[in-house]
Design a protein around this nucleic acid. Structure first.
Lengths: 334, 334
DNA sequence: AGCTAGTGGGTTATCGATTACCCTAAGCGA
DNA sequence: TCGCTTAGGGTAATCGATAACCCACTAGCT
């Protein structure tokens, strides 16, 4: 068994409280010699603080619980966790993540996490969506990341999808593109909001918004590697049609990857014939495409960092929805 | 503050020990009526077990600590964690991950994790490598994942790089390819071992091993999105040379992605003119390439699961190095 | 000398769950 | 009726760290 304050106290011939003070800076009143002797013995014994024991008095463990609906799987998840972690670390806390992993019962998973007595709990979604939390969970979850609670009773941090779509569309228009098309992700909240932003930018630029197609990358389902893709079909149809687009906006970098392949097959050059832009900034893909892809980076890290700040802030914040900006990563596809 | 066994006991008019028994199945001797009454009160109060308190007696928290050298960043990391998690869950434990995140001092990070009193600790590396653990850490880390301890004093789980390279090379040869080239990842252990397997398969097939080039994907450094790539150059040189290869083996799926682009530019078709195969099975990429990429999947999930089994096994295991097999994912690039 | 303030450190209760050990009452056979 | 077993449950110690409160001693001042 690991050494405890008690063991150190016995060897040093002082009381536990003195040892506690020496190692964790409790009372300032302490002879420097005593402190040094105690620290020396602690090091010799390989003493490691027992946070579980400390938590008994404190009431909580120095943990931020993260319940994720399946997110740990995704490369973006890591960004959220990094953001959370960097903020948590400044407060000498750690992040403790647990995924639903297919389990339906959010309440049960929350309880599993609560057994560890985290200081606060965040709930995160893999992709931007609306989530219904069980009633009891509303007082337990301090902040929602990448999702918003159905009844708006929990402070939520989400990406500003509409703003991002608006920005990248404007960017395409400013690059003298006039015939745009958007191969969107159907059936999800992000897709809906981005379509709004896309159309708004077109209208503001005085373009004929009705002439610009918004097409689904897949049929109905979530975009995944199992869903049959419509991308190649859409690209071929549009490019060989009477009025081919000179800019293609893609729902994510993987859609863009398929668009690249389809354009290659048709002998079209990027960006000379067609500009391509997208959302996500999945670096592995975006930076390795030829030409490298201009894409709107999701604010995952930012959401993580803000979430931690919110959870650790002393005073309670109103349960609003905060929309966080994407960051445009300009490469050479426009 | 959350309800405790004490609160429940007071309300139910019984002792804490009875409540403990009722909720956690301690003593079998208990009137069913009493148990039900207690469970009811616990539910009403929203009682959640305090694992920190339990751990005071048990000596450890039901946690498997995972120290990762930077791994949480990678999409593979998630597979290791999933493997660990699924095995841990069967033992009613959770995985608690912490990354080095650039910090040099492994010992300090290990101590940070040990403060939480995990039952056992695993160390994982982002890519297959050799790791030198501080002396004190050798008794603390129960298993190394995706890396091996320099002095072989800790049980290690690593991918069987040589075997995988041998298998995929044989597969290419059996597909009637006779002029192979390998665009390898330079400067890392995996690359060295794979080259061995590649050459062994060539020799076994009676091919002229010296005529098959093994080229570095990048100059010296680790393959990352910052390292200037040599892939396009190599492909162009080889394909336009006197004796172009009919099969290209790639160090990972992102290299393969660049190979695809380079071949497209040269007007070569996959797999008709050139077969392409690689390592990793980064699904996002491999399944979306055109044609979908045949690739050797790293045994990350398996490593995770085995690691948990090892850590939770009662009897200590010898500190050997176990090489785990890759899984070939056949798609349509060969 | 008597008093006060300050220094250095000890005692003990506490947090929540578990557990070794003890107690009571009922039932039952001798 | 006595003694024993068994069901049902109580008491109190324990794990490690913390903190409220207490105590002994010394220097400086009147």
């Amino acid at each position: 068994m690991a050494a405890s304050l008690n063991d150190i106290a016995r060897i040093a011939g002082v009381s536990v409280k003195t040892v506690s003070g020496a190692l964790h800076g409790g009372s300032a009143r302490m002879a420097e010699a005593t402190r040094e002797r105690i620290v020396g013995i602690a090091a010799e014994l390989g003493y490691v603080t027992n946070l579980a024991a400390r938590s008994m008095r404190q009431g909580w463990m120095p943990l931020i619980g993260l319940v994720a609906d399946d997110l740990i799987t995704s490369p973006f998840a890591t960004e959220i966790i990094r953001g959370l972690d960097s903020a948590a670390r400044s407060a000498d806390m750690a992040v403790f993540a647990m995924t639903l992993g297919g389990r339906r019962d959010v309440g049960a998973v929350l309880e599993e996490v609560r057994r560890f007595r985290p200081r606060a709990i965040a709930y995160a979604a893999m992709y931007h969506k609306t989530v219904t939390l069980p009633d009891a969970a509303k007082d337990v979850v301090g902040v929602m990341i990448n999702c918003q609670e159905t009844q708006g009773r929990v402070l939520s941090l989400v990406p500003d999808e509409e703003g991002a779509a608006h920005e990248i569309t404007r960017y395409l228009i400013e690059a003298d593109r006039r015939k745009l098309a958007f191969i969107n992700l159907p059936g999800i909240l992000a897709g809906e909001l981005r379509e709004k932003g896309f159309r708004r930018a077109l209208v503001e630029a005085g373009l004929d918004e009705a002439a610009m197609p918004v097409l689904p990358a897949v049929r109905r389902a979530i975009y995944s590697d199992r869903a049959p893709s419509l991308v190649a079909h859409h690209v071929a149809t549009m490019m060989q049609g009477p009025n081919p687009p000179d800019a293609l906006l893609c729902g994510n970098d993987r859609v863009a990857m398929e668009v690249y392949a389809a354009l290659h097959r048709l002998g079209r050059r990027i960006p000379d014939d067609v500009a391509v832009a997208s959302f996500d900034n999945q670096v592995d893909i975006a930076s390795r495409l030829d030409p490298p892809l201009t894409t709107m980076a999701l604010p995952h890290r930012l959401m993580g960092r803000m979430a931690a700040d919110i959870l650790l802030s002393a005073d309670p914040l109103p349960p609003e929805v905060r929309r966080l900006p994407f960051q445009m990563v300009e490469r050479r596809s426009v």
